[in-house]
Amino acid sequence: MEIFEVTILLLDATFRVATPLVLAALAGMFSERAGVVDIGLEGKMLGAAFAAAAVATTTGSAWLGLMAGIAASLALSSLHAYACVTHNGNQVVSGMAINIVVAGLTPTLGFAWFKLGGRTPALNGDERFSSITLPFADAIGNIPVIGYIYAELISGHNIIVYMAAAAVPIVAYVLFRTRFGLRVRAVGENPHAVDTAGISVEILRYKALAVTGFLCGIAGTYLSTAHGAGFIRDMTAGKGYLALAASYSENGSQSQLCWPVCSLPLPTRYRRDFRVLNYLSSV
């Protein structure tokens, strides 16, 4: 029984840790399907995390924070699109540049606005997304196995965890069952085919990158206003790169790869080690 409980708790923790990775990996997959490599997932998440925390602490609303997070991430992905799509710039360089700018900009703005050495004030109450207890969770929680799984594993997460779970089938549907998805898949495989079909490759890629930005925005918001309670510098700690690796594969069948990697429970010890990008703080 003990092993069962430990397993459930471990899975429960996995959900929490995997949420931003799943969202960011879906984001990375979308841009890659559209034929744009986006190593700026990291920067978009970090920017969103900062914007969300800053707005949440100023307005007192986590939801406004989420919107700000998404807006920040969308702005960054538009920048990426502007560089790579409109001006045909190098995609890796653009992603790197965005990551570095955001890594510097977030503590700079945080330092100037909140005077807390680059972090944002701790978030309380409605400034954060708190856990949701699903209906009947308390009532059936005592039923062995099923009730326990429902109460401990399924119930009791914040709204963004459920959003991430819902995002998986939604993204799959959009990609494989809609006009937009067909076009996105086509533009990644052969942009000329899309062009000659009378569809603007540029606009299509902008749209696909907007989806990437949207998903990254949610992922980043999760870090600072749901999983954590405020923004800390470099709090993405390499998750963007991890998600990129998860979504990356040459032959386009990348989605299978996501799941094993994303579902890895990352012990805190290693997460600390992912701090590499924190090179910036050692200047």
């Binding site: 067909l182 052969n190 085919a193 899309v194 009378g198 569809i199 386009g252």
Partner: peptide, 17 residues
């Protein structure tokens, strides 16, 4: 100007779905 991984049908409707 065709997408190799698509079916003939998918290629033909691309842009006029």
């Amino acid at each position: 100007m065709l997408v190799d991984t698509f079916t003939v049908l998918e290629n033909i409707i691309l842009g006029v779905e």
